[in-house]
Every structure is written in structure tokens, then in C-alpha cells.
Design a protein around this nucleic acid. Structure first.
Lengths: 116, 116
DNA sequence: AAAAACGGATACGGTTCCGAAACATTCAAT
DNA sequence: ATTGAATGTTTCGGAACCGTATCCGTTTTT
């Protein structure tokens, strides 16, 4: 049972959620950053820079930089892979989990409010 | 009849849409920019810098700069208000309409694909 | 052991963005 | 006509981001 919505509802939902994010004074993530963050939190680990770059079809420095800023915000953390020390494994954090969770909750709430 | 979705579905939807945007090589809009763009296209005109800034709870330069970049992308256009020449009226463009429309369509498509 | 391949970070030049403050232009009030 | 307020833009120093290319450490291959 899939989710049905009309384009106007989808756009309104996106607007409301974006307004929430902007107004809440939260970090102003870009689409790319959001995609990286959500991929880390939704897709099964392990996550590497290379893997994320391939998944998003962007270059490695883009991922490195996104991890720099999100790491500074404590939304993700980096650790060397002990097995293959070339790899960097990206892991979730408590703060990142809270951020993602509340983000999801807000979307659900906004979706429920959508006008016909 | 409102839209029901679970947080996991909302997050997955957001991820898929963000991945689409990132992969499509489209301009990498931030939440704020997206909120401004969608407000221009969803809320009834006229739209002014001040009005948008108030709606988004951001400062005026933020709106001015967002309009600079979106204007360069031909997503919006600016015109002085003939009635009160202090005002700048922000208007939609053909390209912006296409962008917003296809964005909405993509969200709808992704929503329909969501797993249970 | 030497060379090639791999994963990630860094350097570079350039663009965009931020918040705060100052700015020009226009309108309204006196 | 002057003053004052309102609207939008610009400036400033500082930060983040882009893509391309290069570098560094590690692992694999020969």
C-alpha cells in the first residue's frame, strides 16, 4: 500500500518542511548534504566516502567536505577501518539520530496537515 | 482526506528526492532556497523581498542573495513595482515553473514507490 | 621488494553564502 | 521642502562549497 499524493500536495509538503527547517535556525543543509545524511541513516552500513560518492553520483571531495561540516555539527562521525586502513567508516551519532528522527516526525506532521 | 505516512517513509521519500536532485546535476539548492522558490510558486502573489524574509524568518540580504542566484538560473525574475517603486516584485518564470513542476512530479513518483 | 592500484584528504582558484552594518532610493508626513 | 520611515541592495570579513588535480598512506599485485 503505497503513498498517494498529488503534485501540488507534494510541493506544499516540501515547502512546509523547508520552511520549518529554515525557521528553526537549524543548519541549512543542501540537497546533497541531506542526501548524504539520510543515506547514512537509512541505508545499511558500512558507509565509506567512496560508496557515498558513488551512490550520489558526486566526486569524493564533495563527500569529504560534507562530512567535514556534518562532523563539526556532530551529525556523523568518522573512523578508520581497522581491517583496511585506507577506508574511513562513517557512523551515526546520537545527535544525528535525534536530528533525523525529528526531521521525519515533522514531515509526517506536515503531511497530515496538507489541504485537500 | 489527509496524507498518512510513517516517519521511516517520510525520511526515505526525502532521501530519494534528494538523491534525484543531486544526481540530476541540477542546481544544489539549500533548504532556504527551496523554501523561497516554493513559496513564490505556491503562495499567491505579489511577493516582495520583505514579505519573503518575514515568511521565512530570515534577513533581507538572504532573500536578495537567493534571488540573485535563482535569477541567474532563470528560476525567478524581479521587477520594480510601478505603484510603489521601493518594492521589488518577484515573479515566476517559464523555466521556474517547469523546474517546480517536474520536482513535484518526481516526489509523487517516489512516494508511490515507497516500500511498506 | 618494487610498482601499481586504491581510498581518502588536501591544494588551488573561483563562486556563493552568512550576519551585521551601512547605503541609495522612494514614499509619507509635516 | 525637510524630515522620517520603508524597501531593497551593497559592503565587509569570514566561512563553506565547487571541480580538477594532486598528494599521502595503505594494500595489492607483480
Amino acid at each position: 500500500m503505497s503513498i498517494h499524493m498529488r503534485p501540488s500536495q507534494a510541493l506544499r509538503l516540501w515547502q512546509q518542511a523547508a520552511l520549518d527547517e529554515a525557521a528553526a535556525g537549524r543548519p541549512d543543509l543542501s540537497f546533497r548534504q541531506a542526501a548524504i545524511l539520510l543515506t547514512i541513516y537509512l541505508d545499511p552500513p558500512p558507509h565509506t566516502v567512496r560508496g557515498l560518492a558513488a551512490r550520489l553520483n558526486v566526486t569524493k571531495p564533495v563527500v569529504t567536505r560534507a562530512l567535514d561540516t556534518m562532523g563539526a555539527l556532530n551529525l556523523v562521525s568518522r573512523h578508520r577501518d581497522p581491517a583496511d586502513r585506507r577506508n574511513v567508516l562513517i557512523r551515526r551519532t546520537v545527535e544525528g539520530s535525534l536530528y533525523v528522527e525529528s526531521f521525519g516526525d515533522r514531515i509526517v506532521a506536515r503531511a497530515a496537515e496538507l489541504p485537500l
